[in-house]
Design a protein around this nucleic acid. Sequence first.
DNA 1: AGCACGCCGACT
DNA 2: GTCGGCGTGCTC
Length: 829
Amino acid sequence: MEQPRLFSDTPIAYYADVILPLALPQYYTYGLPAEYVAVARVGMRVEVQFGKNRLYAALVRRIHTDRPKYGTKTILSVLDAEAIVGETQLRFWEWVASYYCCTVGEVMNAALPSGLKLTSETRLHLSPLFDGDLSNLTDDEYLITEALTIRNELTMEEVQKILNHRATYAVINALLFKRVVRLKEELQNKYKPLTADFVQLAEPYRSDETTLQYAFDKVVNRSLRQAETLMALIQLLRQNPQVRKSELLTAANASPDTIKKLVEKKIIVLEKHPISRLNSYTNPVNENDELSITQQQTLASLHHAFDSHPTVLLHGITGSGKTQIYIELIKKALANNHQVLYLLPEIALTNQLTRRLQKVFGDDLVVYHSRLNNNERVELWQHIRNHTKKIVLGARSALFLPFAHLALIVIDEEHDPSFKQQEPAPRYHARDAAIYLATQIHNAQVLLGSATPSIETYANTQNNKYGLVTLSQRFGTAVLPSVQVVNIADEHKRKAMQSHFSPQLLTAIRQTLEQKKQIILFQNRRGYAPAYVCAACQHAIQCIHCDVSLTHHKSTNNLRCHYCGYNTTLPPKCPACGLPNLQLKGFGTEKVEDELRELIPQARIARMDWDTVSTKDGLQQLIANFEDHKIDLLIGTQMVTKGLDFDNVHLVGILSADSLLQYPDFRASEQAFQLMTQVSGRAGRKHTPGQVIIQAYNTTHPVLAETIANNYTAFYTREIAERHQFHYPPFYRLISLQFQHPQQKTVAEAATFFANHLKTLINPTHILGPTTPTIPRIRTQYIQIILIKIPRQNTLLHQTKQAILDTQVHLAGQKGMTTVRINIDVDPH
DNA sequence: AGCACGCCGACT
DNA sequence: GTCGGCGTGCTC
């Protein structure tokens, strides 16, 4: 059998260091065959074999003539005609890898859309577009096509075999280009092309003015509406031969019925055409929303702040009209033909903001979200790189798009924890990484926006690292809601509580319903009851994979683990003591919903949490229903706090503030303040002041008073003092090391060994632990944590990271320790 | 991340 | 006597 052309027959003069999409610490060097020297460039993907027979699309990082000491394999093919990433992106990747202690390959994996990440696991299918015409195929292409008509599916290994290892990717690329085959990817299968109705004149009237006149006369006597609509269509067709039905509806102010009539009369026809999702809206309306005086002043202050600081925080209370100010800044960047990245928390990527920005920016804007399919992502990637799209609205991963001329990054809701990626590596914080990208690589500006800035960010304004502009008035006639705390311990004593509802809250709900206003209730716990507990022995039913209590879900009548998804039926007897005394303890959103249906049967109630919106459009649907007031009362978890603007919401209730405040984390009160303030901000956005009721057992916690007074400064002053006193960020930097292994003894040994060795390399007082986390086992893996706390100096940071990496190598050299997984999390916010 | 090599336990 | 379990090391 013929061997793969791994080693070139012509002498190699050039070499390429490539990034492999793997968790490997270095770059690998491949020989660059003479025929590729002229075409290969840094930032292009190349086909390489790595290991026994695995093929990867690697990325060229450097081309040079330094012959390595070892023998190299050669690059099998060059996959791109142009670089898909530039030097700036590569430098950014390298910074992310070094700052967050991961490999550049892992960053590459996070950065590239999967459509650009070919590996030999990709499977090949015949394309539905293939017409069976074999005539214009080369021999190699023919072989593959023929095999596919028999086998239906081929792996890359099989393709290699058929081709005797000759230029696999070249053949596949050619077949892809000719639309003979397609690569099977999960998302591609689910992809349905977006189509829209287009309106066209019926065939006889298309080119001939007189027949058109005849058609026109035919309707004009009968129906004025139809005539108007037809007139409008003719107008639109003159400007653009492609007229969307929706476009006509608005232009002619027509009803769908009118169009239907015209279709029935065979004067016009409707055609469905696929449309690109990236261009699915019409031209910008360019409605110039007037800025209020306050907003104008704020904008001026921002410009002024940017003169001296590349990063500026806009601290504007909820409902103060921050978005309009962002829009003005974006317009300015666009006027200079620059690009803008608008980042916001994943969940807040609702139609509301998208629609608003599309109205202003039209086709200059693209939205980068988790539901884009492969092709769309690749398309979008190219638009950004070619600078044919100017504004990206997206969640954290949009940070890795290949911007050509980035001038501004807006980070809305800057405090939001979902900007931090938890799993997998790179565990980066999009806000912090964005600031590096903007200020160190693109010479761009960053605007951070929040009503409740994170302590770190606000501290940076206080030490003059960032500029600060405060917007403390609500926009227009909007007034801040009145906030009231109800002591539910007292209400319980008075026996006034009805299950989880205080009389104050119930009265307010009833009043709000009478006023035909809407209500949002916040309960930070999904499911029906957190635990199923034995009344006799206090044993709670546990997950078999994780050390957590299972949560009861009534709708499915089972017990579920919120960490690994394990679920089981309700056992009849306590597995610990055998008595049938199992009871549900605590309460979640599902239970709140049930109880409320009984207490207030007339209300239309819906629930918003991961259980109800897990389906693709569930969230959008729910939001739409709430917007249209098909729902009176929305019960939700964290989700309801994020960027949803509903004009008609009058009352917001927080069922239990205690669970937020007791959370065992140094960020608990920060998050509680942010959350309660954000939820409260949902109340009464226009004209009438809203009402907020917070229920709590412990009403003395200072955060409650700060929330009631909407006093960020008081909150910040108290919190920053605590952070200082207890050596937490922003005064200290945290690095968390998580050790995982199926054996408890092994993780414990590994973590202890690690800590001891690390103590010989860095100041031992900076090392805390190892400790067992609150949940000691997740997905059958036992966990140990080492927390490193270091004063905020850059030299210390580098030194500490190096010590960690060295210790990691040292540990891997120990017997039995190689299988212990270590996750390094820098700034584990 | 794969993948092969190698060293110890239960089986045709 | 072998098959195969996983722990270990290497991949340009």
